[in-house]
Design a protein around this nucleic acid. Sequence first.
DNA 1: CTGAAAGCGCTTACAG
DNA 2: CTGAAAGCGCTTACAG
Lengths: 338, 338
Amino acid sequence: MKKKTYTLADLAKKLNVSATSISFILNGKAEEKRISADLKEKVLRFVEEVNYKPNLLARSFRTGKTNIIGLMVEDISNSFFSKLARLIEEKANQYGYKILYGSTGNVPDKAKELMQMFIDRRLDGYIIAPTEGIRDEIDQLVNSHVPLVLFDRHYESSQHDYVVLDNYQCAFNAVKHLVDNGFKEIGFVTINSVQQQMQQRLAGYQAAIEAYGLKPYIKLMAYNLEDAKKCKLIVDFLKKSKQLDAVFFSTNYLSINGLRAIKELGLAIPKDLGVLSFDDHVAFELHNPTITAIAQPIDQMADQLIKILLAKLSVNEEHLHQITLPGTLISRNSSLKQ
Amino acid sequence: MKKKTYTLADLAKKLNVSATSISFILNGKAEEKRISADLKEKVLRFVEEVNYKPNLLARSFRTGKTNIIGLMVEDISNSFFSKLARLIEEKANQYGYKILYGSTGNVPDKAKELMQMFIDRRLDGYIIAPTEGIRDEIDQLVNSHVPLVLFDRHYESSQHDYVVLDNYQCAFNAVKHLVDNGFKEIGFVTINSVQQQMQQRLAGYQAAIEAYGLKPYIKLMAYNLEDAKKCKLIVDFLKKSKQLDAVFFSTNYLSINGLRAIKELGLAIPKDLGVLSFDDHVAFELHNPTITAIAQPIDQMADQLIKILLAKLSVNEEHLHQITLPGTLISRNSSLKQ
DNA sequence: CTGAAAGCGCTTACAG
DNA sequence: CTGAAAGCGCTTACAG
């Protein structure tokens, strides 16, 4: 029934050894501090025997290190973010870090609140898909030399580390792909957002449309609408843009609602309407016809993010990392003009 | 340039007020401790002015409370878990709790390690999809009266709180639905697992097959195979079970690989083969034909999980909650015998 | 090679 | 109504 949980002081008393020595041994500093092998073994054996677990709360308080990385995403239930989260989690775990996460839903107040809670908790590092309204918090962290990497989007003209996709080029290539396949009236359905990645996707679309001497058809909508509403808006857009022979959706959730809309309208893909999605999704490969998409290199992104963060965590590296990765256009049947 | 971060002691000195009083005021105990309104206002104003933020690490250490809930899922990149996680996160945030999460991948060692890290961090509460090999850790927490709720599956004959689906009945109903639609040779593709939810799904299938006097065709496979391998095994199974007129997949990731396999084999759904999935997925509604699925009440699950956990966190409730929720069979076109 | 002691920043029982 | 002081369980500079 002796289910007491031991403290360092308890061990010290039982073993007649100072807490200092035990602490050194437990923290792998036995050699550095020139603890005798005898003492080390004696301590380790007893620690094992009574199953002593240091109180990490006390340790964190004392050292100021939490071994926790804050991960802020737009929406953990979106497959892009959840896949990335899974990879980041795995890699972080390998290095002894845990993940505290939060979804912003692109709501600045929510993001601000999350940032504040992260900061209050003195997390060791941050991986953040930033929204509007938290630039101050991010700058504050960076200025305090807290390791932090942005992803998916970043702030223009900033001195932050980031790993993002080459959204502009990907969007440009998507339009080029449609043009190469004979489409001429290409619509673009996107989110009304000032976020860098969405701006770049729009800019890439516009540049390509201009480069090929085509006419732009752009449908903007708010991010925080229900799926049914997004679907409805796409239906309306397609109805009054009869001239379109292809649509390019700027995110996977828009594409999914777009496919619902196209189904509702009874249009045949790609005969009546070509379709291309920014961001891949498992549904696109199963869809009949299969849906052409721009795939983000999620593995590489996770790799880079963790690599950069760990470098900053361990060696306090100050070098600026601003990485732009290329996407891959996965050509499927929805973009083959018949 | 005075960017110092204040401590309680700093405030006390500056204001000529004891740290005790400030602490009471900041923790909303001003009334209870009968602090004068004057003092309260003076303190709050100064706290605001210098933007004082209590060190949560110190507070957690002192109180033993972290305001963090550990969420252990099978795989955060699976849409069932990521959707649930999003809902849990939202509700937890409303009550001031953050989520520390981890994916087990159904690997006992990984789960054990996660549990130990959670425990070491003295989290306030746990929401766990248990795997094999961590029953000891879970019992240990429950015996120490740490709030903990299991979900998705539980341990048989246990005294743990849980929220699960009525997997047995759902699987039974799925077979009944196929039988009602004229299917007679119904295969079941599932994971070779001792986990309660998978056992129940299998048992439900078997009971229904027996009840309707049919012949069982069961394909078991390991959980931790790559998608391509799972797809291959399903192709093989379908090839050598030509008599099948329908297949029931026990999880959404199996269904997705099943759809790939069926596509590869060039079979028409539902003419050549009826299809039904345990667990819904956005791809099923877009698929042509649409895929019949058993949908889990994710909203309700998240609600119940948080409700139970908060009750235990706040009022230390000891009442046992073992909740089994019904699923919904969403009848789509893949199960209509033609 | 080892240990006594200070201190991290809070909260709270106790005293007045 | 308010405050002095102990203590949570570690880590580490310092002394020997």
